[in-house]
Design a protein around this nucleic acid. Structure first.
Lengths: 187, 187
DNA sequence: AAGCCCATGTAATGAGTTACATGATTCG
DNA sequence: CGAATCATGTAACTCATTACATGGGCTT
């Protein structure tokens, strides 16, 4: 076996498997609405991985000429690709989840901040969480109506994000209560 | 002003401010138990940032000779460092939280997995979450007894992790219920 | 005797990002 | 007429990681 491939390679491979016959552009959109919540990838990376997968023989690329939109490549998983995907799925996840939050990093040093700045930080966080919560709610509802197995696994992972966002919104409430309590609008 | 510095630089700066007179080794330990949950940094990076901060004049490094342990550098924040820290704290967090989960990535393709593998994945996740939950519980309890402002902000961020972990544990329960329901121990 | 704790550092590598380029078509 | 959509790609960069090195003192 060659060197171990990055997770993103398999992410894209799995996506091609899930949404066959799509262009890179299509896949980018789908990735952005689906696994971006727990595995974000950029446009450049997606295209690189598609090339890699083609070189590996795990997907095939077919050129499709179009009339009113640019020509594109569409991708389909191969037998080898199927094998690699199943193998990867059975392998234990390497390392743990990684979470980085510029916001919490600031919050961690809250004792050096004015409570005004701190509250501003929290309301910003609330807004972001609410937006995410709504997005995920919509995804869950939409996928609940689709009876395919693929839609189901998508729905269940979206639920993970939904539960997380809800818990964090509660945390924001807690925090605002605690801060406004003992330092009500201090400059 | 020079080029914008990475967040990790300020993370270390804030830590030196929070735990003054510590060695790099000390700071690494503290970082691992504190902001690693939302801003993990490696040993190499920590040392690099300490050098950078010293070059910037934001911290001072003092050599301390020791009898039974190796000599070390201890770090203290300067006036300039204080200024940079406050400025950074008042600045809006760049970009949003980023979360990457090799586990959810696999889960997203669950429809290609046997329910046996899937349940195994979930129990692994549960174990990890339980461990994290306990760790954070301990941190919260410990910091609740320390009356300093620094301990307080630490406690509140730990609470964020605690709430998150709790919500996700519930999610795992949900998932196991759903999976065992319609495919009870299929090979 | 083995192995961990303290303490700092180098070297190599890579995964992923941002910024930019291109160009036809379609919509308001 | 400007903006958005479709569609793919290059170049440069950097943050961060892993692996490795060193070495005395202490514990089992």
């Amino acid at each position: 076996m060659s060197d171990k491939l990055p997770e993103s390679t398999y992410a894209v491979l799995g996506l091609v498997d899930k949404v066959p016959g799509s262009s890179g552009y299509d896949l980018l959109t789908v990735a952005g609405r689906s696994f971006a919540y727990f595995w974000p990838i950029s446009q450049t990376l997606l295209y690189r991985e598609l090339n890699r997968l083609t070189d590996l023989g795990w997907v095939t690329a077919t050129r499709v000429e179009q009339v009113r939109t640019p020509s594109k490549w569409i991708y389909t998983i191969t037998q080898d690709g199927q094998g690699a995907l199943t193998e990867w799925l059975a392998s234990p996840p390497p390392g743990n989840d990684s979470f980085r939050s510029p916001l919490l990093l600031r919050f961690f040093f809250a004792h050096r901040m004015s409570s005004r700045d701190l509250l501003e930080l929290l309301t910003g966080y609330r807004r972001a969480l609410q937006a995410e919560h709504e997005e995920l709610r919509a995804i869950v509802d939409k996928l609940a109506k689709v009876p395919t197995p693929g839609a189901r696994s998508g729905r269940l992972t979206a639920l993970h994000g939904l539960r997380t966002a809800a818990a964090r919104l509660q945390w924001v409430d807690e925090m605002q209560a605690e801060i406004e309590q003992d330092g009500p609008s201090r400059p």
